[in-house]
Design a protein around this nucleic acid. Sequence first.
DNA 1: GCGAGATGTTAATGACCGCTAACATGGTCG
DNA 2: CGACCATGTTAGCGGTCATTAACATCTCGC
Lengths: 198, 198
Amino acid sequence: MAIDHVGAGRTGRRDAILRAAADLFAARGFHGVSIEELGRAVGTSGPALYRHFPGKEALLAAMLLDISERLAADGAAHVAAAHSPEDALDRLLRGHIAFALGEPALITVHDRELGNVPEPQRRRVRRLQRGYVEQWVDVLARLRPGVSAEELRAAVHATFGLLNSTPHSAGRLPSGRMADLLLAMGRAALLASARPGG
Amino acid sequence: MAIDHVGAGRTGRRDAILRAAADLFAARGFHGVSIEELGRAVGTSGPALYRHFPGKEALLAAMLLDISERLAADGAAHVAAAHSPEDALDRLLRGHIAFALGEPALITVHDRELGNVPEPQRRRVRRLQRGYVEQWVDVLARLRPGVSAEELRAAVHATFGLLNSTPHSAGRLPSGRMADLLLAMGRAALLASARPGG
DNA sequence: GCGAGATGTTAATGACCGCTAACATGGTCG
DNA sequence: CGACCATGTTAGCGGTCATTAACATCTCGC
């Protein structure tokens, strides 16, 4: 009974709000969800939320910052643990796939709602996102020298689109098979993209 | 001077509204755009919109129906024109890429805002989308017999995620190179996914 | 030249929303 | 015990939104 997983425990309210908000934002968009609704989703009503966040936009900012930081940190750890570029790419792919399959709502919000984050923190999220992309680009550049960085960046973005599409086809395939499928597709797409003269 | 491309011509108002709405919805989401704003974007103000659509949701419904119909019809034409499964897949890929690169706002709205379409028409959009996916699945099934339809469907959805990611990395690469890149990546991803035992 | 329909305008209405205010409660610690 | 702090509650305020009402203005077929 250490942690209350429906989110109504005496502590952890803040995290419960973030989790519920991720699901709601992913389903109906930032502007499609009201404060009252967010409160009800965690068993309180409406304005209790302001005891944990200064406002609705700040809540979104906290959510996106957390996601971006986790992705960037995990990415750095994966690259550091690898002993070859091939291995690094594999670890990056597996890590991202695990995240996308484990937290489809977070992934969805992450690439849809940046525009609603207010400006001071928006810049930080962008910087983290750029850093994460650059980790992929660096690994890919070592695997396929001679391909322009712009082309590699575009390929990485496209691969993220592939991996993040998980929420749209959720539940159709068992999670393990889906992970294998995405790994095979992602790897093939990245290597095809990076083949000079492709 | 046959057609007014900024959308203020004496006729074609309806289409101009749809075009402007696509850009705005793609940028800030359905609930993030007001009627007043939609009107201003086509040179009228606010409620003039109700002379062309019964309401905001109906406008979105018309937009998504049009996109889904175009995709499904173009897909059928491409498959019909092909003389082999390989050729059909190539035409499907090129057609979808051309659409995604040519109408990034439409593609974005198409896979984000279905949840805001009211129920009678939502079903029709879903049916059209399913039909389009099934065209891809059928072609792919002929190329790689023995792979389950569920797996092929998941692969097709993931490929759409790849191709539709265009708006997120827009303008970084010249359009022609981007099209080549997406074609190579999409084809590689689909074939990797369909390899039995992959 | 004139009724009619299509298309626009501004003003108003009712609902909802984000947020604040004012107040309650319950546990912690001096 | 009793002040304090964290965390709730309900009521209300100001603003915005989608939609409607009421009224103008063009364009045409007659």
